[in-house]
């Protein structure tokens, strides 16, 4: 369990950032997808990353999660270089729903949530009472406890998304990374989803990194905004983004954001 969230947090300049990127670049087949991206994510931040298709948003997430090795630069998680980082239970990832699993996968909601607890329970060990309790609580947090025995594929997209959040929460992560989590989720469920994120961030102190194309919602919810287009175009609070004209610039330049606003 985390102790940091129960006591009032003291902010110091020296506090180790949750994640730190220094001059990170990445190339696919010789083509630069990310160029010189430097970014600091402090504890308790809710960072929204926006940018057009092909801006390198997902690549950036995958680098932070250690799934891709940057071509140059450094990435540190909780002060440790990502290549040496072993404390992965502090990090959880919510992928785009569509790529997460097959619709016909024969898993119950409870089994899916428990799968987020595998590393924490220990390799080759059986789940114990605290694991089941954590899964029950995580399902309660996202309001899906009554569905625990349902087949995951039979739920609506919004419900599946909540189950994937529960799977991420079950290890009590300090950093939660979300990649376009509301794609294919209806408006009502989206609203519930964002209020859940709000609670996780403000009440439980979880640091959130969210990639989204939905600039309207994102700029209302997040505390920090990063505009990415191969390089980091802007990083700061949403208000600053508004003032500096970075948001307006992105709106004007890209029809992709308008297309997604209904």
């Amino acid at each position: 369990m985390k102790t940091s969230t129960s006591s009032p947090r003291v902010w110091t300049v020296a506090e180790t950032p949750v994640a730190e990127l220094e001059h990170v670049c990445f190339s696919y087949d010789g083509e630069r997808v990310l160029d010189e991206v430097s970014l600091r994510i402090a504890r308790g931040d809710f960072l929204g990353i926006i940018g057009p298709n092909g801006a390198g948003k997902t690549t950036l997430l995958r680098i932070v999660l250690g799934l891709l090795r940057p071509s140059c630069g450094h990435v540190r998680l909780f002060g440790t270089d990502v290549a040496q980082f072993r404390d992965w239970q502090r990090v959880a990832y919510i992928p785009q729903k569509a790529v997460a699993f097959e619709a016909r996968f024969p898993a119950s909601v409870f089994e899916v949530v428990m799968s987020g607890r595998v590393r924490l329970a220990g390799l080759g060990r059986r789940f114990a009472a605290p694991d089941y309790e954590a899964a029950r609580r995580a399902l309660e947090t996202v309001g899906m406890l009554p569905f625990r025995d349902r087949l995951i594929g039979q739920l609506s997209s919004g419900q599946q998304q909540r189950v994937l959040i529960a799977r991420a929460l079950v290890s009590h992560p300090d950093l939660l990374v979300l990649d376009e989590p509301t794609v294919g989720v209806d408006a009502d469920a989206q609203e519930q989803f964002y209020s859940l994120l709000h609670r996780l961030n403000r009440e439980m102190g979880t640091t959130l990194v969210l990639v989204s194309h939905d600039i309207g919602v994102i700029s209302q919810e997040v505390t920090q905004l990063a505009c990415l287009n191969r390089t980091l175009v802007f990083h700061g609070s949403p208000e600053e983004a508004m003032r500096s004209g970075a948001l307006a610039e992105m709106y004007r330049a890209q029809s992709w954001m308008v297309a997604h606003r209904h």
Partner: peptide
């Protein structure tokens, strides 16, 4: 169920 998720979990 989710190979990438398992990888992120360590």
């Amino acid at each position: 169920f989710d190979e990438q998720g398992a990888r992120v979990q360590g």
